[in-house]
Design a protein around this nucleic acid. Structure first.
Length: 507
RNA sequence: GCCGUGUUGGUCAAUCGGUUAAGACGCCUCCCUUUCACGGAGGAAUGACGGGUUCGACUCCCGUACAUGGUACCA
């Protein structure tokens, strides 16, 4: 079944927002596929009915789209290996589970939740947590302990049951992980995982093996949290007779929270003030809203570049890579083994770098959502010009309005105390004169404005250093922003004079 | 507890037995800039610990510590 074509898959569960770690897993899958000229497929793992969240699947696809990652095959773009939602593949799994039962590699178990709880209670010791394994399965109600007649009777009376893998005794499962090298497990310490649930749905363990086989997956990347269950998957490939077609595995390191320890979670983002999801997510049940990197003002290419570098590096000094360059340089063996702590400051730096090299017209377009609530009509051209003036002080698109509002509306308040430090009769006279001269100016561009300003300085006997800051504050409201004369040029003659006059009245 | 995985400055990290142990973020100083930023030049800061192996270990091996993941009819 396995030809040599590289085929990888990203297989999320539609249970909520797509967080950083998820996006990075997609990214690495995608980069690997493109690097090797292979296929990247999106498969939805919706086998847990109870955790299914409406809209999550669409949301995930929108996130990929925003990131510039297009699957070659997905529920919306079926290829030759559909369907691409596990819920729609439900009938395919049972036959394999039953095949395993017939072969003696799996068995049927009738235990209730209460049975399992009391078993765990009864057999746990100080040193071990009890699990359903080679030892305890002998005490449970399953097709290994019941007679064939009893099992048949239970089955015909529709008694709820699951199918569990029968872990072998005293074997060592060894495999080579593309990132970690050789990894081995003692089968005595792995429990008899449920393969097929009572509702007829497969668990992840069965589904991932069956689907990866049927979809001809050649390389499988997933988070490190899956490493402990790898022996179950390995054995399944073997028992199903598919060993030769088994994909190569790579268990990606985790993304950790910046402070303290542990896996990065949505709560950490809320707590420390940064996004964790790619895009805004609203939980349909609680209506709780979580902001995403997109809505926080990240450019998608900055976001993906930053994520690519979190756990991988090219070995070169270069840190800024286009998607094409990432595809070109990506290699799975340069992925780190250890988890990486997320650093929001560095993330913002990446974004700042991308803002600097993105042209003003595109930035003007991207910033629209962030000024939509200001209720001001701004021509695209002016917005782009202003963007060019302020972009070098932006780390996030969302900071635009704070840095540029004065170009479009007169500041409601100005920092009067900043002016007062330089204020006296001479400066007052200067500004009266300046307003007059500017009002009479023939040309209106920053060079001409500065000439007028210099002329007024000479005439009034003030020093330029005494007047520059006050002028800035009058126009801007505070001590920030691009060159004053460029600002004056942009806001126009009438408004410039108007702001000076208004300030004069306050001083 | 048990099992797995990991450990180079505060963070991301290069190094794949021999280096003054790169670089980036952040931080500090200075320059540029009559604001803020950009930019430029400097600076502080690193191999968890203990044993081996070796002429020589950040690099290989063992142990300890610490961290992290798993230990569900969730993925």
């Amino acid at each position: 079944m396995n030809n040599n074509k590289v085929r990888v898959r990203f297989a999320p569960s539609p249970t909520g927002g797509l967080h950083l770690g998820g996006v990075r897993t997609v990214l690495y899958n995608y980069l690997f596929a493109r690097h090797h000229g292979g296929d990247f497929v999106l498969r939805i793992e919706d086998t847990d009915q109870s955790r299914f969240v409406a809209g999550a699947e669409e949301y995930i696809m929108q996130c990929l789209d925003w990131c510039g990652i297009q699957p070659d095959e997905s529920p919306l773009k079926p290829g030759a290996y559909g369907p691409y939602r596990q819920s729609e593949r439900k009938p395919m799994y049972a036959q394999y589970a039953h095949q395993l039962v017939e072969q003696g590699n799996a068995y049927i178990a009738f235990d209730t939740t209460e049975d399992l709880e009391s078993m765990r209670e009864q057999y746990k010791t100080e040193h071990h947590n009890a699990q359903y394994d080679g030892r305890t399965r002998a005490f449970m109600r399953n097709s290994l302990t019941l007679t064939k007649e009893e099992v048949d009777a239970l089955l015909t009376s529709n008694t709820p049951h699951v199918i569990r893998i029968k872990m072998p005794q005293n074997e060592t499962v060894v495999f080579t992980d593309m990132i970690r090298g050789e990894v081995s497990f003692d089968t005595n310490l792995v429990d008899d995982k449920v393969l097929l649930k009572a509702d007829g749905m497969p668990t992840y363990h069965l589904a991932v093996v069956v689907d990866d086989y049927l979809m001809n997956i050649s390389h499988a990347f997933r988070g490190e949290e899956w490493l402990p269950s790898a022996p179950v998957h390995l054995l399944l490939w073997k028992y199903l007779g598919w060993e030769a077609a088994m994909p190569q595995w790579a268990h990606l390191p985790l993304i950790l929270k910046p402070d303290g320890n542990g896996k990065l979670s949505k709560r950490d983002g809320d707590r420390l003030g940064f996004p964790v999801f790619a895009m805004d997510w609203t939980d349909p049940r609680s209506m709780e809203q979580t902001t995403g990197f997109r809505e926080r003002g990240f450019l998608p290419e900055a976001f993906t570049n930053m994520l690519a570098m979190l756990g991988w590096n090219s070995g070169m000094e270069q840190e800024l890579f286009t998607m094409d360059e990432l595809v070109q340089h990506f290699s799975i063996d340069r992925v780190h083994k250890a988890g990486a702590k997320f650093d929001y400051e560095k993330a913002k730096w990446f974004n700042q770098q991308y803002i600097q090299k993105t042209d003003n017209a595109r930035l003007a377009e991207l910033v629209q959502p962030f000024i939509a609530d200001k209720n001001i009509a701004i021509q695209d051209e002016k917005l782009a010009t202003v963007m060019g003036l302020v972009k070098e002080r932006l780390h996030l698109l969302s900071e635009f309005w704070d840095q540029a509002s004065f170009f479009f509306v007169r500041p409601e308040t100005i920092d009067v105390t900043a002016i007062q430090a330089k204020w006296n009769d001479t400066t007052r006279q200067f500004f009266v004169l300046l307003a007059q001269k500017l009002g009479a100016a023939a040309d209106w561009n920053h060079v001409a404005i500065e000439e007028v300003f210099n002329g007024a300085i000479a005439e009034s006997g003030t020093k330029k250093g005494e007047a520059m800051l006050p002028l800035r504050v009058m126009l801007v409201g505070g001590k920030f922003g691009p060159g004053v004369f460029a600002i004056a040029e942009q806001i126009g003659k009438a408004e410039t004079v108007g702001r000076i006059d208004a300030a004069l009245k306050q001083l």
